[in-house]
Every structure is written in structure tokens, then in C-alpha cells.
Design a protein around this nucleic acid. Structure first.
Lengths: 152, 152
DNA sequence: AAACATCAGTTGTATGTACAACTATATAAA
DNA sequence: TTTATATAGTTGTACATACAACTGATGTTT
């Protein structure tokens, strides 16, 4: 559905304005599609994001700082996200021995198993985008990178 | 900055995966750029969104239902957003006479004045995207629409 | 070694989001 | 007319986000 129909708006001021609104709207829409599908597994998209980061480190531990700098939304509170994952037995947490300020976090076997399920969900979402050609997907990625670029 | 550097990740599974993550990340990033700039005016992006919708109706009133269906994030609670705007004297709210279930909301002069300020902020954001050519901006808009399309 | 600064993480709090239950009014059916 | 159903908004609550203040551990300076 075109953005104008989604927001029941006749038109936008100019292409830049339409682009800005559309990127925010579509990003939010996609995030909700994902969250909605992860919900039956009892995971939020941020929790899934953290688990994915931990799998990337596995079998090495990750500190909260490492997690934070790799999260999609860096304003989320890594401490409390890990609390939730801990409650569900998806990660372990223990004080790092050589630097007691740090906390080592490792994904558990159960966490790795759960990620196999979320991989299927992500795959399903990717399949949902068949109307986008692979070259277009690449292009969108490039344009998003360019959008965030800063001029000198 | 490229997405891989933002998230300190070596690569993505495939172009679709990179696209999905990038659209979510960039949408969120843009929303934060906007929120951050609106903050000095005491407005959240959602509040600004509602004010803009009310200006579109002005001088006619809008009901909460109309506001809700035009908001970028429809899960936001229109009642409470309007509460906030009311506290600041940016809108008026009164029970509709011919259907007392409905509530008529109208933007005030003060609200219209404030929108002139936020217009400048939006304009400033648009100027920030000079690295994007107008045709590219149009293209991004079209690709975002296509992304949300559903196959039959 | 004592004092100070920095760092890694935690906690507190105001605000926002998601979603369901509720109230009051209006419309339709029996 | 009474009961049932749908509609427009409101309220409650659990959870998430934004951001600042705090605690404890480690480095650095003198």
C-alpha cells in the first residue's frame, strides 16, 4: 500500500519529506512484523538481537559493553535485557575473573536451540519479500547506508 | 557509516537480510534524529505527528479515530497523546454535540505557531540529506512502498 | 599509599508502547 | 420498549526506552 494511502494523506511537500516519513514508517512497520512473529517464542526483537550477538561470540563470552555497541537499538538497557534472557535460561552470566567490573555472558544450549527457531522466522520474512529482486535488496541496503552518511 | 561498521558485524547472510536489518536500523536512527531535534520544543515525534494531522484538518475538528488512523505509529495511544498536547495548550478538546461518543479536537493558534518551528526543523533535516539526489529520494520512497507490498 | 579519575555495569525514574478491559453512547433486533 | 450489538474513547497494566545518578573496581598521579 502506498504511503499516502497508509496515512490517508494526499501528498507530501517534496521527495525528501516523503522519503523521511516513509523510511521511519517502513522501519517501524518491519520491526513490528518481526516482533509479532517472535512473540510466540517469548522473545522481543531486542532480546533476539542480543541472542544473535552472543551466538556470534560463542563459545567465547561477551561483556555487556560489547553487546551494547552491537545492538540495533543502543539505547536499550543491556543489563535488563540480559536479566530477561537469564530468567528464561537462554544465557549464563558470571563475573569476569581478571576484571571484576566486567560480566561475562554466554549463550546456553537452550539459547542456541531457540535461535534455530528464530532463524526460520527471519527466513520466512525474507521469503515474504519476493516482490523485491535481489539487486533491489542490495540497492536498498546501499541507499540506507548513504542516508546515514554525514557530509563534511 | 556502513551498517557493518555500525553494528560491528562482518557480513550478513544475504542481501535480503542486510536490507531488513538496515531498514529497521535506519528508520530507528532517523526517528531518533527527529526526536532529538524536537525535544527542545517539548514535543515528541508522535506529538508532532498529531499536531500535523490537526493542521491538515484545520479549521475543522478531528476525532480521535481520525487521528489514530493517520498516525505513523498506530499503536500509540491517541487519547494520552492529546492529553499531553492539551496540557501545553496546543489543542482544544470538546465533546461533539451530534454524537456524544465522539470528541472534537482542534489545534490552537499556539499549536499552529509551534508547528512553524517544527517545520523549520524538518526542513533542516531535509537539508541534511544533500548527499541524496532528489531522484534517489524518490526512488527510496518507491522502494519503501514496494517493501510493504503483499503478494497475492 | 592516598587521592582522584575513569570504567563497567546497575539502578531509579519519567515517559512511551502494546494490548486488553472497561464506560458511555448509539444503533438494531426482538 | 427492552435487550442485544456495535462504536468512540478511556483507563489499567505490564513492559520497554531514554537518560541520569549511583556503586564498585581499576588505573593514574603525586
Amino acid at each position: 500500500m502506498k504511503l499516502e494511502d497508509e496515512l490517508k494523506q494526499k501528498s507530501f511537500k517534496n521527495p525528501y519529506h516523503r522519503m523521511m516519513v516513509n523510511v521511519m514508517f517502513t522501519g517501524n512497520w518491519l520491526m513490528k512484523e518481526l516482533s509479532c512473529q517472535l512473540k510466540p517464542l517469548g522473545l522481543s526483537s531486542q532480546q533476539n538481537n542480543v541472542l544473535g550477538i552472543l551466538r556470534g561470540q560463542y563459545p567465547n563470552p561477551a561483556t555487556l559493553g560489547l553487546i551494547q555497541e552491537r545492538m540495533m537499538d543502543r539505547d536499550s538497557n543491556a543489563t535488563r535485557l540480559v536479566d530477561k534472557l537469564l530468567e528464561k535460561g537462554l544465557v549464563t552470566r558470571c563475573q569476569c575473573s581478571h576484571n571484576r567490573r566486567q560480566v561475562d555472558i554466554v549463550i546456553t544450549e537452550k539459547g542456541l536451540e531457540l535461535l534455530k527457531e528464530t532463524d526460520k522466522i527471519i527466513q520466512g520474512l525474507e521469503d515474504r519479500f519476493k516482490q523485491i529482486a535481489p539487486e533491489e535488496a542490495t540497492l536498498i541496503g546501499e541507499l540506507m547506508d548513504k542516508l546515514r552518511e554525514r557530509e563534511a
